[in-house]
Design a protein around this nucleic acid. Structure first.
Length: 514
DNA sequence: TTAGGGTTAG
């Protein structure tokens, strides 16, 4: 006993910095080899010892000392109850832990003293490895399993789905069926997660058929996943139909449908669904509040925004950082700057996002002097804050202020993006300064911003406004030939129309997609 | 036991 303990301690101490990756891996680890030779020592000489060690481990776990608990288990030269291993696997992968080293130690100890552990416990190990971010360990363990059950397949499919390997999840799903295991709710939920990750609509439809065939259509998680996928694939009517078929949609289901309507640009429907949620007596999540408020901003629905604000106060959501930022932005975008400022002035409401919302609110409502006052007071700024101020000058054609601001920006920050460049082009167009515009074009080309739609449209607008139709056509036919939206078409069309080139304007007009 | 959504500002 003492000899084994000594050997173990010695072996462990020989690994620098506690790096046990090698010692803990697989059935041929150094630890396993050492312990296999001491087979007669694999039972505690005194049952009371095992009980005492288990109690010590549990005490450490209760106090949140996972590493210490695993360390004690690892050094103990006898097996423990399977439920302890299960708990340890779960804790190794719980939020905040992600303790891959500890998970490997637990696995090593388990296999050393129980060479054929129950399948459910190996499944837990696979899940733990995957949640710790090591899909390789999970895959290896799965491959080495002499026996598997449906849970083993589910564990690996989920592991692939959550580790960003959707294709592998699909392959395993097919292989699982061929191996004679029937998929259950868990399998379908994971496969649907993979479908959503790659927007695999055709595959989703096939999986949907199987879900109906196997009778899992009424499952709230699966129903919500289907709503999510169809919504993400821009088939909102199907998404809504499936949502309506869910018997008791929960907070997540409602959040998905509100979010999908918002993303589709159907702000009104998003708000309607938000209020319907209360009729169904489901408590919204803070994200659902935020989504509903963004929906109000998108369609300037101030009255509904005020109602949502009231509900947020009543339910205690107004203290939440994201909800209060969304409220400030909603009021600012709906033009009620007084209410936006009132929330902004409350303690703990002033982060860079709410600062930017309030600056943008004043800037875009024409009160650029007030916006600038606030901008100058900002304790912290980022590229979005700078753009918000510049966008205000550009919207109200304050070209001199815009140029001064650009000089200040150049001297203060190196952080610019495609929105900044689009706005600078707008300033060039406003000043009819095509030479400056060309310099900006060169910068865009050199720094790889050419593929941005915002920048492309900015170039088109700048050249058109400055009367350089040949350059505008070059942008139209080369730079933005793969995508053209209504903004691009409008830029060229209005320019041709202004110059009396009605036949060219008509060509653009007829080519527009309505 | 295992499964789904989300993150506010230009």
């Amino acid at each position: 006993m003492y000899f084994t303990q000594f050997v173990l301690n010695y072996a462990w101490a020989a690994i620098p910095n506690g790096n046990c990756n090698n010692i803990c891996m697989g059935g041929n680890s150094l630890l396993n080899l050492l312990l296999c030779d001491k087979g007669h020592l694999t039972k505690p000489s005194n049952p009371a010892t095992a009980k005492a060690v288990t109690t010590t481990i549990l005490n450490h776990l209760d106090s949140g000392r996972l590493r210490k608990a695993v360390s004690i288990l690892f050094y103990a030269p006898f097996p423990f109850h399977f439920s302890l291993y299960a708990r340890l696997f779960q804790l190794c992968s719980s939020t905040g832990s992600r303790a891959i080293v500890e998970a490997r130690k637990v696995e090593s100890h388990l296999f050393t003293f129980s060479p054929t552990p129950p399948v459910f416990l190996v499944n837990r190990a696979i899940e733990a490895f995957a949640k710790c971010g090591s899909l390789g360990d999970a895959r290896e363990l799965f491959e080495e399993m002499p026996q598997r059950d449906g849970g083993s397949w589910n564990a690996l499919i989920t592991a692939c789905s959550q580790s960003g390997s959707p294709e592998e999840a699909f392959r395993l799903f097919v292989k699982m069926s061929r191996s004679g295991f029937l998929p259950n709710e868990i399998t379908f939920a994971s496969v649907l997660g993979s479908c959503a990750a790659v927007l695999a609509l055709s595959l989703s439809r096939q999986v949907h058929g199987l879900i109906v065939k196997y009778g899992f259509g009424g499952n709230v998680v699966i129903g919500s996943s289907l709503v999510d996928i169809y919504g993400k694939c821009v088939i909102i009517d199907d998404a809504r139909k499936i949502f309506d078929e869910i018997k008791n949609p929960n907070d997540i289901s409602w959040n998905i449908i509100v979010r999908r309507y918002l993303e589709m640009g159907e702000g009104e429907e998003a708000i309607v669904m938000f209020f319907q949620m209360f009729k169904a007596a489901v408590r919204p999540l803070k994200f659902t509040f935020s989504n509903a408020l963004v929906a109000c901003s998108s369609i300037s629905a101030l009255d509904e925004g005020i109602q949502i604000h009231g509900v947020a106060i009543k339910m205690g959501f107004d203290d939440d950082e994201i909800v209060s930022s969304s409220l400030i932005d909603m009021y600012a975008k709906c033009g009620d700057l007084e209410s936006a400022s009132a929330i902004f002035d409350q303690p703990n409401s002033k982060d860079v996002i709410s600062w930017t919302s309030i600056v943008s609110g004043y800037a875009m409502s024409g009160q650029t002097w007030k916006a600038r006052e606030l901008f100058d007071e900002m304790p912290e700024r980022n590229v979005i804050s700078w753009n918000a101020m510049l966008a205000g000058y550009a919207r109200y054609s304050q070209w001199e202020e815009a140029v001064d601001f650009l000089f200040l920006m150049r001297n203060t920050t190196n952080n610019i993006d495609q929105v900044t460049l689009g706005l600078i082009l707008k300033v060039c167009a406003g000043l009819l300064d095509v030479e400056l515009g060309k310099q900006v074009h060169g910068f865009i080309y050199r720094h790889g911003f050419s593929s941005s739609m915002f920048v492309g449209n900015g170039l088109l607008h700048m050249y058109s406004k400055c009367g350089k139709m040949r350059s505008a056509k070059t942008v139209w036919f080369h730079q933005i030939s793969h995508w053209r939206d209504r903004v691009s078409s409008n830029a060229l069309l209005s320019s041709y129309a202004r110059r009396g080139r009605s036949e060219l304007a008509m060509t653009i007009f007829c080519g527009m997609q309505w």
